[in-house]
Amino acid sequence: MNETIGIILIGIGLTFDFFGCLGLVRLPDVYNRLQASTKCVTLGTCSILFGVFLMLGPTAAGIKSLLCIIFLVLTAPVSAHAIARGAHRSGVKLWKGSVVDRYAEDKEGGL
């Protein structure tokens, strides 16, 4: 039973991973790519790790995969945030179809 649920979770995770990387190729600009890839790949890899935990049970490797989930959920959004801020400060423009950019307006007003 646990093995079946684990295999299903691993399959869901692989699907999310693959579509996240497809978004990395298809979307037009750094920020959109960051959105798609960070969300999909983080949830997909967490799903794979939880499936591995269900298949292995509470052994050493299973508990370590649970810890790895905690580390990933805490660190992946922070690195996405850092890359987005660095890209905006280094002068990468938004995609030409973008609607509004309050950050650039406020930075020009403030500085």
Binding site: G23, Q35, L43, V100, R102
Partner: peptide, 26 residues
């Protein structure tokens, strides 16, 4: 919320006309 977000993003990615409307809000 996380699972809902992922399904939303995947639907946006695989549609051929890329229905995105991005921007930075405050």
């Amino acid at each position: 919320e996380c699972i809902k977000a992922n399904i939303d993003v995947i639907i946006r990615i695989i549609r051929p006309d890329l229905p995105i409307n991005p921007g930075i809000v405050k």
